[in-house]
């Protein structure tokens, strides 16, 4: 269900957690936004690139059993919401840990993994997941 260009243009966010920062109020966003919802017009055209911290804490999570086709070989896998150390909440899979050992408050860090692909002859899409901190 993926399109090559659609995924390609999100690479900065997918690989390196590039979001946006509003130069007016300083609030940071992930994924990137072209406008700050608080400063609105004053921020248009002025949003600056912001790299989100790669470490964070598990805010909540679920162990997914009814899985999308792309993740069949990962079943069951853990998806979570991570609060990064710069206070951005985002959703990602949590890997390299047994589901029963995941808990709210656990320290994790971003890693690059395969997200899915466009079939055996299609493009492979990579993006961030989180793994327990070393």
């Amino acid at each position: 269900m993926s399109s090559t260009a659609r995924e390609w243009r999100e690479i900065p966010g997918r690989y390196n957690l590039k979001g946006s920062k509003c130069p007016e109020c300083g609030k940071v966003f992930f994924p990137k936004r072209s406008m700050c919802p608080l400063c609105r017009r004053a921020s248009i055209g002025k949003m600056i690139e912001y790299k989100v911290e790669r470490k964070g804490t598990v805010y909540t999570y679920s162990v997914v059993y009814d899985v999308p086709e792309a993740n069949k070989r990962m079943k069951p896998y853990v998806v979570g919401m991570i609060r990064t150390d710069d206070d951005i909440l985002l959703t990602a899979q949590i890997v390299d840990v047994d589901p029963e050992n995941v808990e709210i408050g656990m320290r994790v860090q971003a890693v690059l993994r395969k997200i899915d692909d466009d079939g055996p002859s299609g493009v492979i899409h990579y993006g961030f997941k989180f793994a327990p901190c070393e």
């Binding site: 990962m74 890997v95 390299d96 890693v111 690059l112 395969k114 997200i115 990579y126």
Partner: peptide
């Protein structure tokens, strides 16, 4: 390697 790992992800790590 886990199903979501390959030479790209290992190289990046």
């Amino acid at each position: 390697p886990a199903p979501d790992e390959d030479v790209v992800t290992i190289s990046v790590a």
